[in-house]
Design a protein around this nucleic acid. Structure first.
Length: 255
DNA sequence: ACCTCCCTGGCC
DNA sequence: GGCCAGGGAGGT
């Protein structure tokens, strides 16, 4: 149960009317379930409300640690003695409390199937991408065709699948889609087993404060001009919809 | 379906 | 001193 909740940054509470509202709606509530859909954390509460949290770019949760850390915007003290803190320098993340109606109007309601727990099959992904002319890289980041991939894992996935980031989504044939789906599985399996990707900025950390080790497994993200681990061709970088995109021009030829 | 915006630490 | 990184939301 949330014995006390402090929300100390206006922007962290932006999906409710105020930090005080987030705190008061959580106060005294017991957690009945914890789920994740895409990059959204859903925590069910005993009064039917749902606490929804998103790490954004630089957010992280600390459980029983980081007392007094800079950029702590949420502190929840549980009756068990556990203290959960949300630390988020760039404030792209948020903590919200929704009732059933509010959830329907939130970003959660627009998410495609979860890339890890509910990966789409070839037919379903094909339907979701049919007719789409936008680059597959942009569609992977969109979260509606499939949810859960950010910029790093989208680049890694496309490289493993041998698909150029600018390929129109609707141009992928069933073979491409099969490789894409399998690449998603492998990239996420590897990343999760490594505890996630902590970059040199150390923004992302596990809840116990440890760094994730997946940066060593990245083969294209952040490696422009370095030789491709598969074929030795220098990795290239281009910008797709304002996001950097790293790929091997040989392994991922545009067709 | 696209564009802009938000935000701060780190780096050039 | 200025730019870059990028998650989603909201507007055009």
């Amino acid at each position: 149960m949330f014995e006390s909740v402090e929300v100390t940054h206006e922007r962290t509470a932006r999906h409710n009317s105020s930090p005080a509202e987030v705190a008061s709606r959580l106060q005294g509530r017991r957690v009945t379930g914890v789920e994740r859909h895409g990059k959204f954390l859903r925590i069910s509460l005993d009064d039917g409300q749902t606490m929804v949290a998103h790490l954004g770019m630089s957010g992280r949760w600390a459980v029983d640690g980081e007392d007094g850390a800079l950029h702590t915007h949420f502190v929840g003290r549980m009756d068990s003695g556990t203290v959960v803190r949300f630390i988020d320098p760039r404030t792209f993340g948020f903590v919200a409390v929704y009732d059933e109606d509010e959830i329907l109007g939130s970003g959660l309601s627009r998410l495609g199937p979860d890339a890890w727990t509910d990966p789409p099959q070839i037919g379903e992904l094909g339907e979701r991408l049919a007719g789409r002319t936008a680059p597959i890289k942009a569609l992977l980041l969109d979260q509606r065709p499939i949810s859960g991939l950010g910029n790093i894992y989208a680049d890694e996935t496309l490289h493993l699948a041998g698909i150029h980031p600018l390929t129109p989504g609707g141009a992928l044939d069933p073979e491409d889609l099969g490789r894409l789906i399998e690449a998603v599985r492998i990239v996420l399996e590897t990343a999760i087993s490594r505890g996630g990707t902590t970059l040199s900025d150390a923004a992302y950390l596990l809840p116990d404060g440890r760094a994730g080790a997946n940066m060593a497994d990245l083969v294209v993200y952040g490696r422009q001009d370095e030789p491709c681990t598969t074929c030795g061709t220098p990795i290239e970088r281009l910008v797709v919809r304002g996001r950097s995109s790293h790929f091997c021009p040989n392994c991922q030829m545009l067709r």
